[in-house]
């Protein structure tokens, strides 16, 4: 099947229906493997067992940024080609991104209290991730405020592109400013600074979270396509009603 055929919502729904059981199975398996590896991972020589929080905090942080990047890419489909499936992808991704950003913030606070002595500091990394969370809420609110999906998509696309400027700030905030948050220890030019016994479970959990995100996103896209069909049918019903203007 040519890739362009997937841009057809009906074909997309058919493909999603076929893929979904496999994706759910792969996600459950990946989490089972990841959690077994987490259980067997040693404590950190400085942080003790609290390093186990990293196995959910870091994948959540990666997804928080990755989902906004995905939304930013989808906006090109909206603004350049005006393709409805691009709107659907961006709209469906926003609540999932907000949830993973919230998880990143919550686990970060729960990790910060025993390690830093505080749940929160207004340093560049924490603040820029909080800004990302607020921008997710802003995009969700925008989608819900504007009734016409195509108009909402264009407004949300502009906000998404503006918000994408925050992504490099989040990534390099720990290098540009003096922050309480530690510098990058996995994705860095010199290679990971984490011992393989901790790095491997982290990567396994990252794969599990990625599969979870893909599964949830496809399911949410399917719902959004159905919602638009319902809206179209309701408009048709209203137009066909006796006494309507048309």
């Amino acid at each position: 099947m040519p890739i362009v055929d997937l841009a057809n919502p009906s074909r997309f729904l058919a493909l999603t229906a076929r893929l979904m059981p496999w994706l759910i199975g792969a996600t459950v398996l990946a989490f089972a493997v990841g959690l077994v590896m987490v259980k067997g991972a040693p404590d950190d020589y400085q942080q003790g067992a609290t390093v186990k929080i990293m196995f959910i905090h870091v994948p959540s942080a990666w997804l928080a940024m990755g989902i906004w990047a995905l939304m930013a890419i989808a906006t090109f489909g909206t603004l350049v080609w005006r393709h409805p499936l691009a709107d659907v992808a961006a709209k469906a991704a926003a609540p999932i991104g907000a949830a993973f950003t919230a998880l990143c913030l919550i686990t970060g606070m729960l990790w910060g209290r025993p390690m830093w002595g505080t749940y929160w500091v207004w340093d560049a990394r924490l603040t820029s991730v909080l800004v990302l969370f607020l921008m997710y809420l802003g995009v969700i609110a925008l989608w819900r405020t504007v009734e016409d999906p195509s108009r909402a998509a264009r407004a949300a696309a502009i906000l998404t592109l503006v918000g994408a400027l925050n992504l490099p700030i989040i990534k390099w905030s720990v290098d540009w400013w003096n922050t309480l948050h530690q510098p990058a220890s996995v994705v860095r030019l010199a290679g990971p600074a984490i011992h393989p016994t901790i790095l491997m479970p982290l990567l396994a959990m990252a794969v599990a979270f990625l599969l979870l995100m893909v599964t949830l996103h496809l399911a949410a896209m399917r719902n959004e396509i159905l919602r638009r069909r319902v809206r179209t049918l309701m408009l048709m019903q209203a137009q066909a009603a006796p006494g309507s203007a048309s």
Partner: peptide, 28 residues
């Protein structure tokens, strides 16, 4: 598995993850 003196923070983190993921699945 001994989670040490900060077990509440570790368990709380995993509980938050379960609650948020379960919430997303239920919503969808």
């Amino acid at each position: 598995m001994n989670l040490g003196p900060h077990a509440a923070f570790i368990v709380g983190s995993y509980a938050a993850a379960i609650a948020i993921v379960a919430g997303l699945i239920a919503w969808i």
